[in-house]
Design a protein around this nucleic acid. Structure first.
Lengths: 345, 345
DNA sequence: CTGTTAGCGCGTTCAT
DNA sequence: ATGAACGCGCTAACAG
């Protein structure tokens, strides 16, 4: 049953008593091939169930038609949704997608990038680990001609291609929303300080408070390392402030969930004693009886597909290789997060 | 900055005035290479930052060191967790992982399998789409020598390698649990009938009821196509039965969530008027104020890693290729689902 | 111990 | 319109 040998053009050539190059050309609809031969070749190919050996082609073309995707995890709906976006574009361009998770571990991230490089992926799409502060493992790729596009968790340095949702507009909306609801003590449950989004969030928070002439209490701004423990600890800190915050802005829905659980343990009633607003707008929150009052939608699908689109563009440029040494320009796509209100109360 | 050419063994050979094979052997610690030359080679390789071109190796060895993973989606924590298991094993064996989602669409599934085949993945790990009832796109792989291992959503035919959690023990425990809590009218919210697990679930359900001498009402056994709409419709059916069921066994946590939402809309109080027990035991349920009373743990990580382990084993056999035409034996690993109780009430 | 060579499957000149 | 030959980077069989 098992046909040991997959058909090759050579095989076809032999059977038809023509040369391999003829077969190759016929298969590619090269104009200079006789209609008759072309037909014969194509028919036999079909019949033999011939499929070109991608490995050989990759080898020859020096490209693998594969892009690597490195992200913190697949568990968060945000990232799996982003992958959908990436996959869609990649498939459209006949690219394969190699996915790997850094688990927010910079060391793992380095390893992954290294293996991907060795496997000669054509390009990389990356969302950084929470603790990654150095980018040399990415800059190193430049000399191999492997383009990198970051999304969501992007480096704070300018010289990278990135797609992300800026925190400004969304955060502004969120804070204004809470103020309008009467909240005066608003806590911030931020991510690690090295994350670009954390800084932006804090900045905007401050701005809005100043503009609204509310008192700024730095004790209300805290950060979690994104682990559950870190979040609980941060919440402990926030809730120990006096007076207690009546609302909390959390870096994302998962963190908000942990935080809400903690608050509930402290006998606080969600959306009554304390309100939550967070980022991402995940579908699971719709299942909660007491979801966050509002979420800043981050458009993961769009971020993924935009990043992939940019990468495809970069790759097509590399193709022709007559690359005029442009003054190295970087794509920087910013998506405005939109506040989505879940609970009227 | 960009070094156009990556170093090759040929390059190293030239610089050292030795032959490529010497370099190759030195790099592989071949015993028959002089210590001195070996050192020289390895040092220069290091210095040049030489990395073997995997594409070339793949091409030569006729294997890609890549396994494909086809599953319904990445969004469900069950699957992303399974991927962690797969990744762990694959990485350990120096394999890459190509992931693709069928979105429960058999047509997409076929396409994916076809591309993976053309990309010459060494093997496949698959969890079937909900509606897949034919397996010819998988059996076809046999003649290309591409082994397939299924997990969780496995074919109901015997001649495939599979890893799955059988529904019997877990379902039995679940029903007994509900009966012990005083429930007499227990509804079943099953998946599509073609799914192996659905049949098993129904069978066990019947068995336990018979054993406990409870009345069997076929109106209480219904199925959803796993879409939200399908689930709501099925719930409508279940809740229209008289007397209404007081407990419902749902095929998985996500479905349970949809079902609970529907119940809540019907002014039923979760865990009071109606109880839920489901399968999977996802971490998100811990965030719910009213989680399912109990879940049958399905061990996604373990399923993934076991499947990968089996695939690795199959692949290593293929390697030596002196495959004695064994009478085609299939691996069939069954994991017993364990009931985990969340709510005492 | 080391070098020479063939060949994996394909696309691509360069001839004819 | 077609064929012959080369080479991509690497391994392995064969020769010294």
């Amino acid at each position: 049953m098992k046909e040991d040998k997959l058909p090759t053009i050579k095989e076809i050539a032999k059977q038809l008593n023509v040369s391999v190059s003829t077969v190759s050309r016929a298969l590619h609809n090269h104009p200079s091939i006789g209609l008759r031969t072309k037909m014969r070749v194509q028919q036999l190919a079909q019949q033999l169930d011939y499929e070109p050996n991608q490995a050989a082609i990759f080898f020859k073309q020096r490209k693998t038609s594969t892009i690597g995707v490195v992200l913190p995890n697949l568990k968060e709906e945000f990232f799996s949704e982003a992958i959908n976006g990436i996959e869609e574009i990649a498939t459209k361009h006949k690219y394969n997608v190699l996915i790997s998770q850094s688990r927010d571990d910079t060391e793992r991230e380095r390893m992954i990038v290294a293996t991907m490089k060795n496997n000669r992926v054509d390009g990389l799409i990356v969302s950084l680990g929470a603790n990654t502060t150095t980018y040399d493992h990415f800059t190193a790729l430049k000399k191999y001609g492997i383009p990198v596009v970051f999304f969501d968790r992007v480096p704070s340095l300018p010289d990278f291609n990135k797609v992300y949702s800026n925190m400004n507009s969304g955060t502004r909306e969120a804070i204004e929303f809470l103020i309008a609801k009467g909240h005066r003590r608003i806590g911030v449950l931020n991510g690690p300080e090295q994350m670009r989004s954390s800084q932006e969030r804090t900045d905007t928070y401050m701005q809005v408070l100043v503009k609204r002439r509310l008192k700024i209490d730095l004790g209300l701004v805290t950060s979690t390392d994104l682990t559950r423990e870190g979040t609980l600890k941060a919440m402990g800190h926030l809730l120990s402030q006096r007076p207690k915050p009546t609302a909390i802005l959390a870096i994302n829905d998962y963190i908000a969930l942990d935080a809400m659980q903690y608050a509930r343990q402290q006998k606080l009633r969600i959306n009554k004693d304390i309100c939550f607003v967070s980022y991402a707008n995940l579908s699971i929150t719709t299942y909660l009886q007491t979801p966050p009052m509002a979420s800043v939608e981050q458009y993961p699908y769009r971020q993924g597909s935009e990043a992939a689109e940019i990468l495809m563009e970069l790759l097509s440029k590399t193709d022709h290789d007559g690359l005029p040494p442009e003054p190295e320009t970087f794509r920087n796509v910013v998506i405005n997060g939109q506040l989505v209100i879940h609970s009227k109360r």
